[in-house]
Simulated assay, not measured.
Amino acid sequence: MDWAAWHAGYDNPDSVLAGRLAAVQAVIRAALDQAPPGPLTAISMCAGQGRDLIGALATHPRRDDVRARLVELDPRNTAVAEQSAREAGLTGITVVPGDAGLMRHYRDMAPVDLVLACGIFGNLTDADVLRTVEACAQLCREGGTVVWTRHRRPPDLVPVIADWFSARGFEQVFVSDPAAGFGVGAHRLCHPPRALQSADRIFTFVPEKQPAQP
């Protein structure tokens, strides 16, 4: 999979991907609107070019309150994310080149106010999706929000993922309508985060979705 070329779908305003991006950005803005005053922290797994968080923050009143870490493996995508953050004047954003499936990238920031797990769940086994949900319960602050995505192709795992979050102490804030053609969810943690586990590996993309060599 060429994850740099994949981003071209965002540039077609009529595409499902562009619609998903708009929904994710709207959920992020709503979470920022409802967050308590003061500094905020965020992490983005498999951040790609950072279009979701950078796009949401660029014009948001809380933009300067947010310190965020974007983790992305493809160096072409990290370069775009860094440039976009600079152009938007978002000095609180750090882009980390690396395997987003490793907990080591997040431990020193956890727990955070906002966890983005977008563009991940459709590329994992169901067991790794569940493992990532469990990791989110460790990485998210009480009252913090996890924003996630998953395609709606059969078998539609979106309702199952929503139930997995609920079973781990999250309340559902938003799940997109199936008619939209994409799945976007947001869940807020209602109790203190779970203790960080010692295991480092959270998820691994299935073989056909592994990044191509640039």
Score class of each variant (00 low, 15 high):
27 V>E: 13
54 I>C: 11
60 H>G: 05
66 V>E: 08
33 D>G: 06
40 L>F: 00
78 T>S: 11
71 V>A: 06
73 L>N: 11
59 T>W: 06
25 Q>R: 15
89 G>Y: 02
24 V>W: 01
80 V>T: 14
87 E>C: 02
88 A>P: 00
73 L>M: 14
98 G>F: 04
67 R>C: 12
24 V>N: 01
50 G>F: 00
76 R>W: 01
101 G>D: 07
97 P>M: 10
35 A>R: 09
27 V>C: 12
61 P>L: 10
46 C>N: 12
66 V>Y: 01
70 L>N: 09
88 A>Q: 06
40 L>K: 11
39 P>I: 00
26 A>Q: 14
41 T>H: 10
77 N>F: 02
43 I>E: 09
81 A>Q: 00
86 R>M: 09
83 Q>H: 12
77 N>T: 05
80 V>K: 12
93 I>K: 10
87 E>D: 14
25 Q>W: 08
58 A>W: 05
86 R>W: 04
48 G>F: 03
66 V>M: 13
48 G>Y: 04
42 A>M: 10
75 P>I: 08
34 Q>H: 12
56 A>F: 06
92 G>S: 09
81 A>S: 05
85 A>M: 04
88 A>M: 03
49 Q>T: 15
50 G>C: 09
73 L>C: 11
91 T>G: 13
51 R>H: 15
101 G>Q: 06
45 M>R: 00
86 R>T: 06
99 D>T: 03
46 C>E: 13
87 E>L: 12
46 C>F: 13
63 R>D: 09
25 Q>N: 03
54 I>W: 00
88 A>F: 01
84 S>L: 14
28 I>F: 10
92 G>V: 08
52 D>V: 03
88 A>V: 00
53 L>D: 01
76 R>H: 04
76 R>L: 12
37 P>I: 02
102 L>P: 03
56 A>N: 07
75 P>S: 13
74 D>G: 11
93 I>Y: 06
85 A>Q: 07
87 E>W: 01
38 G>S: 02
92 G>E: 06
51 R>N: 14
48 G>C: 02
